[in-house]
Amino acid sequence: QIFVKTLTGKTITLEVEPSDTIENVKAKIQDKEGIPPDQQRLIFAGKQLEDGRTLSDYNIQKESTLHLVL
């Protein structure tokens, strides 16, 4: 699982696999929060994550925290 922290300070927990794409993660966030993926920007280690890449591409491991910017 990974954590996604929103600007409001809320933390969302997501069940993911390293092979999941960023697009996939955004879809999971939409399921939980109702935020359309095209409004979501995910930041990890100061980098904006691209939809077509996977979590493992960015070396995002379990218990990692991503930041969600709208």
Rank of each mutant, 00 (worst) to 15 (best):
Q1I: 15
Q1C: 15
F3A: 04
F3R: 06
V4H: 01
K5Q: 11
K5S: 08
K5P: 01
T8P: 05
T8C: 15
G9L: 04
G9Y: 04
G9M: 04
K10Y: 13
K10W: 10
K10N: 08
K10A: 08
T11W: 08
T11I: 14
T11C: 15
T11G: 03
I12K: 01
I12V: 06
I12G: 01
I12D: 00
T13D: 04
T13F: 08
T13V: 14
T13N: 06
L14K: 00
E15I: 13
E15W: 15
V16K: 01
V16N: 02
V16S: 04
V16Q: 02
V16Y: 15
E17F: 12
P18A: 11
P18H: 08
P18C: 10
S19G: 11
S19F: 12
S19H: 12
D20H: 06
T21I: 04
I22E: 00
I22M: 04
I22D: 00
I22N: 01
E23M: 14
E23L: 15
E23H: 11
E23C: 14
N24T: 15
N24D: 12
N24H: 14
V25N: 00
V25F: 03
V25S: 00
K26H: 02
A27Q: 12
A27F: 15
K28I: 06
K28T: 03
I29W: 00
I29E: 00
Q30L: 10
Q30V: 04
Q30S: 11
K32R: 10
K32W: 06
K32F: 08
K32S: 09
E33F: 11
E33I: 14
E33N: 08
G34Y: 03
G34P: 02
I35M: 05
I35T: 07
I35K: 03
P36T: 06
P36F: 06
P36A: 10
P36C: 09
P37A: 15
P37R: 13
D38I: 10
D38S: 13
D38F: 11
D38V: 09
Q39H: 11
Q39L: 10
Q40W: 06
Q40G: 03
R41N: 10
R41H: 11
R41A: 08
R41W: 09
L42F: 04
L42N: 00
I43Y: 15
I43V: 10
F44T: 02
F44N: 02
F44M: 04
A45E: 13
G46H: 06
G46F: 05
G46T: 04
K47Q: 14
K47C: 12
Q48H: 10
Q48S: 10
Q48Y: 13
Q48I: 13
L49N: 00
E50Q: 09
E50H: 08
E50T: 07
D51S: 08
D51M: 05
D51N: 13
D51Y: 05
D51P: 07
D51R: 04
G52Y: 11
G52F: 12
R53I: 06
R53D: 05
R53Y: 14
T54G: 03
L55M: 06
L55P: 01
S56A: 14
S56P: 03
Y58M: 04
Y58V: 02
N59Q: 09
I60F: 03
I60Y: 02
I60C: 03
I60Q: 01
Q61P: 13
K62N: 15
E63P: 03
E63D: 15
E63R: 07
E63Q: 11
S64H: 08
S64P: 03
S64L: 04
T65W: 09
T65Y: 08
L66K: 01
L66Y: 02
L66M: 05
L66I: 12
H67W: 12
L68N: 01
L68F: 03
V69F: 13
V69A: 08
L70M: 11
L70S: 10
